[in-house]
């Protein structure tokens, strides 16, 4: 994929938002909130940051790869995959319908190009992405592995098993992102199970934390991703102090949809 200009990226984001609304509305089912909240992030990744090939290969050799841990925000991923050429945009209309490749949560069973593993049951994506990153190191493939997690999802214990592993092995070719929107099914994360000082938690696990406060501002998202990447490059030059060179791009996103499109693109 060629890198797109800022104006083009903003236009693509608008189109992706339209896709998300149409897909979810058509079946009156799905998770539009965080899908809309993460639109800039996905657009920035697939149309600017990642080196990737829509002529999909499972192994992703010589490419950057993305993994979605919070699989319920599949609409935004499907839209961005279609818009970047992995499959025809007409197929978006099959979302969550019988015999579709666009399952409610991302899956490989039906062979949808762009999806490399199923997700939906929360807490598993960071482990998977670390496995992919570890294999890339074994294969001497210098490309990055990206993974997105929800903030409520961080209540799952497996995330912290994976966080600990990354630090122990110095897995520095992964950029993990948390969609820190403060909401989960039963209410605000502060009420359901407070994440408290999330930055301190990740830092205590040995991660470098980068915070992007305006998660729906394309320039801010691009800057955050580039900072995360640069952080790795910086660390890689150091031959001794290599225990803290992987990055967590921590973004604040407004995410709850309250019915009308006018509310969608607000920042926190």
């Amino acid at each position: 994929m060629e890198q797109q200009s800022l104006d083009q990226l903003k236009k693509i984001s608008s189109q992706v938002r339209r896709d998300i609304l149409r897909m979810v509305h058509a079946v009156q089912s799905g998770h539009p909130g965080a899908s809309l909240g993460c639109t800039e992030f996905f657009t920035a990744l697939y149309f600017h940051e990642m080196k990737h090939n829509p002529a999909f290969s499972m192994s992703g050799e010589g490419e950057d790869m993305f993994f979605l841990s919070n699989g319920h925000i599949s609409p935004v991923w499907y839209s961005v995959l279609a818009r970047s050429g992995y499959f025809k945009t007409e197929e978006l209309a099959t979302f969550r319908k019988l015999n579709s490749r666009l399952q409610g949560h991302p899956a490989t069973e039906e062979g949808l190009p762009g999806i490399r593993i199923a997700s939906g049951s929360l807490g598993q994506g960071l482990s998977v992405a670390l496995g992919v990153a570890q294999a890339k190191k074994l294969n001497q493939d210098p490309h990055h592995v990206y993974v997105l997690m929800g903030d409520g999802e961080l209540q799952e214990g497996q995330i912290w098993e994976a966080a600990m592993y990354a630090a122990h092995y110095g897995v520095d070719n992964i950029i993990a992102t948390v969609d820190y929107n403060g909401q989960q099914i039963d209410g605000p994360t502060t009420a359901v199970m407070d994440l408290k000082n999330l930055r301190a938690k990740w830092e205590a696990f040995g991660w470098e934390v980068i915070e992007t406060k305006k998660g729906n501002d394309m320039e801010a998202v691009l800057a955050g991703l580039q900072e995360a990447k640069a952080s790795r490059a910086k660390g890689s030059q150091s031959s001794i102090s290599c225990t803290q060179k992987w990055a967590l791009a921590w973004t604040l996103w407004w995410a709850r949809i309250s019915g009308t499109a006018s509310h969608l693109a607000m920042n926190s």
Binding site: S59, G60, Q124, S127, L130, G131, V132, A135, Q158
Partner: peptide
């Protein structure tokens, strides 16, 4: 749990 996820991810890179 992490071990199973890591293993699944490694297969994507041909391991």
């Amino acid at each position: 749990a992490n071990m199973m996820g890591l293993a699944a991810g490694m297969t994507i890179g041909g391991k």
